[in-house]
Design a protein around this nucleic acid. Structure first.
Lengths: 157, 157
DNA sequence: CTCATCTCAGTCAGACTGACATTC
DNA sequence: CGAATGTCAGTCGGACTGAGATGA
C-alpha cells in the first residue's frame, strides 16, 4: 500500500536545525491553508494580534513586535486597510509616523483567525500530551529569546 | 544601549507554529552562512549525508529520504557532479534511473560540513543543557514522524 | 547633521507545480 | 496500459536589501 516510508539519514534527524525547518514547513502549509480559507493574506494574523494586544501603533513598532520587515509591513497594512480591518491615520505629534488602528471588523477577523490557528496547533501537536506541549513551547521560547536581542529592527546603515 | 526589546504579542509566543517558523528562520540563517563559507550550495548536505549513510542511490530515492523535491534534486546533483562530490551513472538494470555515487572528495566535503553544522547546533542550543536538548529533539521528532507517512514522493497525477 | 519612519523596487533562497519523454 | 524516473521551465510565498523622501 504505502510506497516505502523511506528512512531519513540520521545526520538529519539528529540536527535540531533540520527538524525545526522541516516542521516549520509543515506548520506553514497548515497555517497557510487555514488563513487562505478565511480570506486572510500572510502577515495579517501577527499584525492584528499586535494591534489587539498593544493598541494603536506605528508601522515600525508593528514590525518590531511581530518580527516582520518594515517594507513587508507596508504591503500588509495596505491590504488590511483595503479590507477594512485597520485604519491608517497620520500621527499628529510625529508626522513621519502612521498610526494604525484596529477596526471592529478587524477585531472580528482576528477572532476567526484565532480559531483557525488554534485548530492548526491542535493538529500539529496531536501526538503530544498537555505537559509535553508546554514543555516544547517552553524550550522553543527559550531558544528564541536567547537570539532575539540584537535585531529589534534593521540596524542603521 | 539596546533600542527596545519590544514585546511580542502573546498570541504569537503561545503558538508552536510561530515559534517553529521563527526559530527555523534563525537556524536557516546560521546554516546558510556556515555552508556558504564552506563553498556548499543548498541541499548539498542532506544529499551527501544520505549517500554516505545508505550508499549509492537513485535521485528519486535521495529526494524521498531527504524530503527534497525531485526537480530540486536534479539541480543539486548537477552542481555536486560539477564539484566532484558525486558521480552520476546510468543504472544498467533500470534504465530510467541514474545511480548517484559518493566520491572520495564528496566524503571529505561531508566531513567539513558536519563540523560546520555541528557548530551551528551548538550555537543554536546554547541556552539548553544536555538533557533538555535530547528532550527537544525527541519532541520535535515525534511531531515530524506523525505527519510524515503520506508524502514519500509527489503523488502520481 | 543624524537618525527614524514610510515607501517602492527588486533580489534571493526555497518549496512546489506542470508538463514531457523514457522506461518499467 | 498505468506507474515511476529524470528533466526543464516556471510559479509563489516569504525574508531581506537598497535607496529615496520626509520629518524629529
Amino acid at each position: 500500500m504505502n510506497p516505502s516510508p523511506d528512512q531519513v539519514p540520521e545526520r538529519l534527524t539528529a540536527k535540531t536545525s533540520w527538524l525545526l525547518k522541516e516542521l516549520a514547513v509543515q506548520a506553514g502549509r497548515l497555517s497557510h491553508e487555514a488563513f487562505g480559507a478565511a480570506g486572510a493574506k500572510p502577515y495579517w494574523y501577527p499584525l492584528l494580534a499586535a494591534l489587539a494586544e498593544f493598541g494603536p501603533s506605528s508601522q515600525a513598532e508593528l514590525g518590531r513586535r511581530c518580527r516582520i520587515d518594515r517594507s513587508d509591513v507596508v504591503a500588509a497594512v495596505n491590504a488590511l486597510v483595503a479590507d477594512g480591518c485597520v485604519e491608517r491615520t497620520a500621527d499628529p505629534v510625529d508626522r513621519r509616523r502612521n498610526v494604525i488602528t484596529l477596526t471592529a471588523s478587524g477585531r472580528e477577523r482576528l477572532g476567526v483567525l484565532d480559531e483557525r490557528l488554534a485548530a492548526v496547533q491542535r493538529e500539529l501537536l496531536a501526538p503530544l500530551d498537555t505537559s509535553e506541549r508546554t514543555q516544547l513551547t517552553d524550550l522553543l521560547w527559550r531558544l528564541l529569546a536567547e537570539r532575539t536581542p540584537e535585531r529589534g529592527d534593521r540596524p542603521a546603515p
